[in-house]
Every structure is written in structure tokens, then in C-alpha cells.
Amino acid sequence: MSRAAQAARPAFTGRKARFVALCLLPGAVFVLLFTYYPMIRGAVIAFQRYNLFDITSTPFVGLDNFRAVLAEDRFWTALRNTGTWVAVSLFFQFFLGFGLALLLRRHFRGRGLYQAWVFFPWAMSGFLIGLLWRWMFNGQFGVVNDLLLKAGIIDERIGFLATPGWAMTSVIVANVWYGVTFFAIMIMAALQSVPAELYEAASVDGASRLRQFWHVTLPHIRPTLALIVLLRIIWILNFPDLIYAMTGGGPAGGTDIITTFLIQQVIGGDYGRAGAVGMLVLGLLLAFSVFYLNATRFERSR
């Protein structure tokens, strides 16, 4: 581009605009090509008969895929399980994580070492965590059974992962164990972002520690907390790894959540049905996100 042409443009174009475009282009291209394009294609496929094992004929079938999915009991079970899985996991992760972050907030001897060890699970994958707990919850040689027997809490071994109610409890226990660390890290980072001056000012004013927490800390970190919680809900929902490794969704769909259900459709090769399930999840998530973001924005502006 010639110098004259550049100069003729309004203020934003030129060097600044080039810089902005250059910085954003790589990310935008990746996301467009490998996220949005497949998603749009998935939305189209949801209205097609599209089976991987017969892709010569992929006619549009209207809402057939949706009807088929909604008529399945397993879908509704998965939907109910998803609610339990997300709500119970999040509740314990958040409060235990927040508690841990508060306990670790002030310096004490050995804090660094303690953090190194206690944050350790975060370095493991959900899949590995799932395998690890699958072994611990083993009905015969599992250590959980052994410990509970020794403590006299149970009289005989429980087939944790083979019994419907216990299976859900087991996967949630594993998920909580895993997620507390994440919350602790994020919340500690948020706590440390509160400028020390604010506390100094508050102590000068004679505010108690509880009041400081309530009136200084919480308002300051609330936007971050909101974002963390929102992202976390979505991650828990998108976290079939652990269930996949522990129970594979069993027994008889007892630990199936919407995303393990979705993956089963994809593995089964029925992309049309998978697309339909995907669209249903998408609708739920978008409605939830809009609701949540609005609610937190309201909180902030109050």
C-alpha cells in the first residue's frame, strides 16, 4: 500500500490497524477453520441422515434425528445425570477450593512445599484420574472397600462402580477430588490480585478480617469468580473423560451424562444423531450462559 493511500484513510487504519489485524489473525483463522466450520457443518448434519458407514446417501430428513433422540430413555437419563454431576461436583469443588485458597493465602513455613504437593492432581489427566479411581473403587481388590471395612463403616465389600447409585457417587467423589485443586489455584490467583493498599486502608478504618473479606476481597474478585465458575461448569459438563475411564457410562447408563452420550453416538458412527444431540446441548448451554452472564453483570453493576 502506498504512503499516500495510507495517509488518506481515517485514523484507525494504517499502522495501528495492521498491528491489530496481524495480532488477531492467527487465532481467528484457527478458530474459524477448526471450530466454527465443523460446528456449522454439524448443525447441518443434524438434519441429515448421515451414517459414517453409508455416506453415499445423506438426504435431508427434517427433524427425524431429533425425534429419534428424544424418544430414547437413555437420553433423558443422561440429562438428569448431567444435572446431578454438574451441581454436586461444582458445589464441593468450589467451597473446598475456596477454603483451601483461604488457608493458603497467608504465608506460613512450608507453604511452598505444601502447595507443590497439594496441587499435584492438576498435573494429571482426567482420563488417568478416572483409571486411578477405577482401581481404588474396585469391588474386589479396591482400597476404598478395604479402608471402609477396616474402619468398620461397611460390613461387606461394595461393588461401587457396578451399583447404580454408588457408581454416580463414586464418579462425583473422583471429580471433586480432582477439581478442588483447580479452584484453589484460580481463587488464590484472584485473591492475590487484590491490591494490598485496599487492605491497608480497611485496617486503618478498623475493619475486622471478616468484614475485610466481605467488603474488600469479595467485591474485588467477584467478576473473576463469576468467570471461573462459568468456565468450570462448562468444563465439568465437557469432562466425560473421567466417567469414560471409570465406568464408561455404566452400569446400564447409570453414570451417562450428556457428553458421554454424545461421544457414544459419534463412536457409533451416526453423525446425524450425534449432530442432533449436539444441537440440543448447544441450546441448553447457550440459554444457561446468557442467563448466567446477565445475572453476574447485574451483580457487578449493582
Binding site: V31, F34, T35, Y36, Y37, P38, M39, R41, G42, I45, Y50, L52, L231, I234, L237, N238, P240, T259, L262, I263, V266, Y271, A274, G275, G278, M279, V281, L282, L285, L286, S289
Partner: peptide, 17 residues
């Protein structure tokens, strides 16, 4: 928005891509 949406929605089409 991409943070709200499970990538698994796109797993099939992504495979095709």
C-alpha cells in the same frame, strides 16, 4: 462462545474435515 460449547458437538464433522 467456543468456551461454552463442547467440542464433541463438532467431533464428527471435525473427523470429516
Amino acid at each position: 462462545v467456543t468456551q461454552m460449547i463442547p467440542l464433541f458437538i463438532a467431533l464428527g464433522p471435525l473427523y470429516l474435515l
